[in-house]
């Protein structure tokens, strides 16, 4: 009697189990909604991996090399933009005229530090610090810039760092830094303002009202020396000279440092007007100017337009340091006899 009950019972149980578990793949996994990655400011992932960044620099280097070889700036704008495009173009013109490229144009391929931000949005930039060159020139600070999502990173600015200049600290490339904006608050001065003050300082040298806010640096020192030398020559001719420095709107890139300050790289154009007195001609003041001027007809006034790229470190307002320039580049781009 019992067997009549248990046997069908067992069969029913087995079938029930079978139907629920036959050909079972398991539960379909669901996507974990783990919060938007871009919302956290502390945990932002870098926009580029170090491998991607190295690939970009390699491509930039290839474009530069090609242009260097041909001394032709035609293909430059594929990977070069901003002040660097102007400087490179000028250097290539000079190289064509003089036959060789200025050694200061060398950009080493090996990198000492890369600063890759994790900010969403465009334009976005990457700062890279190269090693010293083979002939013991100073390190270069490269600024790569991606203007929009559909464009690629281009070499926007290069500043040669001063010997012994102290750069601020940045997070490692795997963590992701943070870009700043030209109007950042909480610093000794906003980046735009700091650049403007520095331009004023360059223009007015010791008599500028901002002299006490800035530490002395090599660029200003060399500028002073140059100006004084030219002044002596000009005064001998009873001529005059003046330089006007003007920061360029929008040509500024800012990166937050982990020390609380900002590293600012900006373009300051300067126009150097030299009048030769007593009917003399005003001639190019350097080989570069000469090469740019080429075989133009000199007059008593010469106007030379320079592109200066300066790298400033603006500390936070609570810091006891002054604003200091850590690197610069200066290149005449246009020489005209007015």
């Amino acid at each position: 009697m019992h067997r009549f009950v248990t046997r069908p019972l067992v069969v029913v149980i087995s079938l029930g189990l079978l139907s629920s578990l036959a050909a079972c793949q398991g539960q379909v996994p669901q996507v974990q909604k783990s919060g938007t990655p871009s919302s956290g400011t502390a945990t932002r992932t870098p926009n580029l991996t170090t491998r991607q960044e190295a690939a970009i620099r390699k491509e930039i280097g290839q474009v530069l090399d090609k242009a260097n070889e041909s001394k032709d700036p035609a293909g430059l704008d594929e990977r070069v933009s901003g002040p660097q495009l102007q400087i490179r173009t000028s250097e290539l013109q000079i190289a064509k005229a003089t036959g060789s490229l200025n050694p200061k144009t060398i950009i080493p391929t090996s990198i000492a530090q890369t600063v890759i931000p994790g900010d969403p949005g465009w334009p976005r930039s990457v700062f890279a610090i190269t090693t010293t060159t083979e002939d013991q020139q100073s390190k270069r600070l490269l600024v790569l810039n991606q203007e929009s999502a559909h464009e690629n990173y281009k070499l926007w600015g290069v500043a040669r760092l001063f010997q012994g200049a102290q750069l601020p600290k940045f997070p490692v490339a795997t963590i992701g830094a943070q870009m700043g904006s030209p109007t950042d608050e909480g610093l000794k001065a906003t980046p735009v303002e700091a650049v403007r003050q520095y331009a004023d300082l360059l223009q007015n040298s010791g008599s500028s009202q901002y002299a006490k806010d800035f530490a002395q640096d090599d660029f200003r020192t060399s500028m002073d020396t140059l100006t004084q030398a030219v002044q002596k020559g000009i005064e001998a001719n009873r001529g005059s000279q003046d330089q006007t420095f003007s920061p360029q709107d929008g040509e500024i890139r800012v990166m937050h440092s982990s020390e609380g300050g900002d590293l600012v790289v900006a373009q300051i154009n300067s126009v150097w007007t030299r009048h030769a007195g007593e009917g003399r001609e005003s001639t190019p003041a350097s080989d570069a100017e000469k090469a740019l001027f080429g075989d133009g007809k000199a007059t008593s006034t010469m106007k030379v337009t320079y592109v200066n790229v300066i790298a400033l470190y603006v500390p936070s307002s609570t810091s006891r340091d002054q604003i200091r320039a850590v690197g610069a580049e200066r290149e005449p781009i246009k020489v005209e006899a007015v």
Binding site: H2, R7, L17
Partner: peptide
């Protein structure tokens, strides 16, 4: 002994058989 033991025995055999089936024929792809 006569009633419960066979029930348990059958269930045990069924479980083992199902386990083998799940490990071989019905293994998730």
């Amino acid at each position: 002994r006569g009633v419960v033991t066979p029930i348990f025995g059958l269930l045990a055999v069924t479980c083992i058989v199902l386990g083998i089936m799940n490990a071989t024929v019905w293994k998730p792809s």
